[in-house]
Design a protein around this nucleic acid. Structure first.
Length: 603
DNA sequence: TTTAGGG
DNA sequence: CCCTAAA
């Protein structure tokens, strides 16, 4: 039950600290805010954003020297994105509610930042905590870690990095104090502060700050002891569920409290490392990521919404997710489109006003794609890479990969459109990228799937003011009356499910079928209907002939299936077979025979 | 909202 | 796939 590792990781790079009781992470994007005299948080003004933006840019530049920049960038690119914690109050002391949800930590960090801000009034510098680590250090760490698949695992890499940070006892504290408020310090945290047995209660504020730094990789100016203790405990524990006092830290691990959610360390292997391992493993088993489930059902999720439901699964999943996430999390075309849509109005490519963002964010709220356990870090120019969603009750940021909504666009919302397949295709470079599928099954043709997400492309463009493509170029429809939005090729498994569903419930019961077999898919009943129609067409036509040969993304449909489709289409009566849902699909022998050799249909 | 159809 | 009309 510990999901912690990832969080630590996050903190390092993105500076988030989301820990949850469940262990689910709750990545959060920070928003630049200003602390008013009365302690209330006020969204930063556009100007402030701009300032920050610059700052970030610089950071970015630095990071560019890192290997696998693209990935790293993705994760480090965050910045003052949104973090609206409605009820969060600034005083640190209020953070101790354990049920505060992951937000607590975030809030904490935020606060920390805010404090810093207080100190140095208008410099958003601390917002950069995200970019805490120096490039060189990062490199070192990266290299130091024996993380094999760097490519496909930026996440892991990062994690490892964090691990090293924590476990690295070498770097002795020292000038930790000199760390700048900005959070970008060149000095190395004094990890030793957390070595051996340490009673947080006995630490001085300064020591706690050091511990904080060792834990989160960034400096804090907060002098609230309680808060610091909690932060450290939470950070080491990856859980929000920590007592306000009495925590004992031993070799970077929190003990002496209900450090339940912790991953037990094994023989001196730092917990973090274990976590990293976990992540890695998870990563290796994409199959375990049931996370991606499409997400229609998650749309309604709201931030802060925490579902008490706690399974062990989420945690495990989290790992998986993370591992997977990293790779996958690429902005979708749609995302870009959206951005474009919004940003387009802003020829300068600057950040849109807070208000706009807010609105946008709102819109982005209903994702359905891959969840990203990590906090999303966006480039200054973009805050839209991910959207927040709820995963198992935790709000997380997910890459904005999928279509938000199916069906008619809202009256006040421009429909998101996907690029044309051809275009999209070109954008998909990383074959190695993990493609999450809604349900493990649909992994058939990765490349065709997710065409919409040309991550790096998007990132870069966005970073640079997202102008790479013109909105119109990308999404014809938005600007002009364009073409179709997305095209998610149907996978064989989907087809099978559909056929099976029709067999059971009958054609026309799309809603039912969808509910039963595509509940976690973005396929809507209309999609099913359309698909069925196409299948029927194919079963007739195709039986022998291959319609659009020019459709590379179309996957061939086994003749047997087509035959079945045909049968179902022809004798609708013999359907409702409620009961054999468990059976995959029955292929009638004759059918198979008949159709065999005839050529396949295409999806 | 869900279906059925047209585009 | 999208969009609408109907229901």
């Amino acid at each position: 039950m510990d999901v912690g590792g990832s969080q630590d990781t996050l903190e390092k790079k993105t500076d988030d600290n989301d820990l949850d009781k469940n262990g689910s992470s709750d990545p959060v994007v920070y928003q630049l805010v200003r602390v008013e005299g009365d302690g209330t948080l006020v969204p930063a003004t556009e100007d402030e954003f701009l300032q920050f933006e610059h700052f970030l840019h610089d950071e970015r530049v630095d990071l560019s020297s890192i290997d696998d920049v693209a990935h790293v960038e993705e994760y480090f690119t965050n910045d003052c994105t949104t973090l609206k914690k409605p009820d969060y109050e600034e005083s640190p002391s209020k953070l101790d509610t354990s049920d505060v949800q992951a937000d607590t930590l975030d809030a904490g960090l935020e606060e920390d930042r805010l404090h810093a801000l207080d100190d140095s009034i208008n410099l958003p510098s601390n917002c950069s905590a995200v970019h805490d680590r120096q490039p060189d250090k990062l490199n070192t760490e990266l290299g130091g870690n024996n993380i094999p698949q760097q490519n496909n695992a930026s996440t892991e890499t990062i994690k490892s990095t964090v691990l090293n940070d924590l476990s690295a006892e070498k770097e002795k504290g020292d000038a930790s104090t000199r760390a700048s408020v900005s959070g970008v310090t060149s000095s190395v945290p004094d990890f030793s502060i957390l070595r051996g047995e340490v009673y947080l209660d006995n630490l001085t504020i300064r020591e706690l700050q050091e511990a904080f730094r060792a834990t989160f990789g960034r400096q804090t100016t907060v002098k609230d002891k309680l808060w610091l203790k909690r932060q450290v405990a939470m950070g080491l524990t990856n859980s929000c569920d920590v007592p306000s006092s009495g925590c004992v830290v031993k070799d970077y691990k929190v003990i002496g409290m209900g450090a339940k959610q912790e991953i037990p360390s094994v023989k001196g292997i730092p917990k973090m490392e274990l976590e990293a391992t976990l992540v890695r493993n998870q990563f290796m088993n994409p199959g375990s990521s049931f996370f991606y489930q499409g997400g229609e059902q998650q749309r309604s999720s709201k931030r802060l919404k925490r579902v008490p439901t706690e399974n062990d699964e989420p945690q495990v999943t989290m790992f998986t997710e993370q591992g997977t996430t990293k790779r996958i999390r690429k902005p979708t075309k749609r995302y870009i489109e959206e951005l474009s849509d919004i940003e387009t109005h802003d020829s300068t490519g600057r950040l849109s006003s807070p208000v706009k963002r807010a609105v946008h964010d709102e819109v982005l709220l209903r994702p359905r794609a891959i969840m990203i356990p990590f906090r999303e870090v966006d480039s200054s120019s973009t805050t839209y890479n991910t959207r927040e969603d709820t995963l198992g009750g935790y709000s997380v940021h997910v890459p904005y990969v999928s279509r938000m909504r199916r069906g008619r666009p809202r009256s006040n919302f421009v429909p998101f459109l996907d690029l044309e397949p051809s275009v999209e295709y070109t954008e998909v470079h990383h074959a190695d990228r993990l493609n999450l599928e809604k349900d493990g099954e649909q992994r058939n043709h990765k490349n065709t799937k997710w065409k919409g997400e040309h991550i790096e492309t998007a990132d870069k463009k966005e970073v640079h003011g997202l102008q790479g493509k013109n909105l119109s170029d990308i999404n014809p429809q938005i600007k002009h009356g364009g073409k179709r939005k997305h095209h998610q090729a149907w996978t064989l498994s989907e087809v099978l499910k559909l056929v099976d569903g029709v067999a059971r419930y009958g054609a026309g019961k799309w809603s039912e079928i969808r509910r039963v077999a595509f509940s976690y898919s973005y396929r809507t009943s209309v999609d099913l209907k359309d698909k069925w129609r196409n299948l029927i067409r194919a079963s007739r036509t195709n039986d022998g002939v291959c319609p659009r040969k020019n459709n590379p993304s179309a996957i061939p449909i086994p003749p047997s299936i087509l035959l079945r489709v045909k049968e179902l289409a022809e004798n609708p009566e013999m359907q409702p077979h409620a009961g054999d849902l468990t059976l995959p699909i029955k292929f009638s022998r004759e059918s198979t025979k008949v159709v065999q050799g005839k050529g396949s249909g295409f999806l």
